[in-house]
């Protein structure tokens, strides 16, 4: 796979982002996805049987990766050290800030692929299904922390604003503009 992508985190941040610090994220993300599945089951209906496929999400600028099986209320997310050899039905690789932009709909997946801002391998049909389900889910940062109401709006505004700033700082692709 390609080694470097546009918009990766600066080296100093990568060094600070020690894998051990991320590993507890797995159970927390598992709970967040299951909670979301109970709240919006239609998103997982859209995925159909592809919900049982495994998706390896590899931020190219971190030493950790995320292995996800988005099977509704039985969903599971594991946070792993990237060096561990891991089989998955689908692998998606790219800078963390770009991958997060796919989650909230900031970026168009096809455009990122055309511009080689991400790399994909494995079962393309499962990836397309996941991409379309995520597109329709209208995920927000508040969904991941289970915040609602005023607190949810505050979380969304802060995180989305922060991500926008971070993308400008790291030179991430800008929607509509060539990479």
């Amino acid at each position: 796979m390609a080694e470097h992508f546009r918009g990766e985190l600066p080296k100093i941040l990568r060094l600070l982002a020690a894998p051990a610090g991320f590993l507890p994220l797995g159970p927390a993300l598992t709970l967040a996805v299951r909670r979301f599945a109970r709240r919006k089951p239609a998103v997982f209906d859209r995925l159909g049987d592809y919900g049982k496929c495994s998706f390896l999400i590899e931020p190219s600028d971190l030493d950790v990766c995320f292995l996800m099986v988005p099977d509704g209320t039985r969903a599971e997310v594991k946070c792993l050290r990237r060096r561990a050899s891991q089989h998955a039905d689908v692998t998606v690789r790219g800078p963390l800030l770009v991958l997060l932009g796919l989650l909230d709909g900031t970026f168009d997946g096809d455009a990122l692929f055309f511009n080689r801002a991400i790399a994909v391998s494995g079962r393309t049909d499962a990836l397309v299904a996941l991409r379309n389900a995520i597109e329709d889910a209208e995920l927000t940062p508040a969904d991941f922390v289970g915040a609602t109401g005023g607190l949810g709006r505050l979380v969304d505004r802060s995180v989305i604003g922060g991500l926008g700033l971070a993308r400008r700082f790291t030179g991430s692709p800008i929607p509509g503009e060539p990479s």
Partner: peptide, 28 residues
């Protein structure tokens, strides 16, 4: 559809037929 990465870039296969191959950084 399958995409395979190797040292020469990315190969695009359609039902086993290789229909394109593009190098690192080349638009797809």
């Amino acid at each position: 559809v399958a995409y395979t990465e190797d040292r020469n870039g990315t190969a695009t296969r359609l039902n086993g037929f290789t229909i394109d191959r593009f190098g690192a950084g080349e638009q797809a």
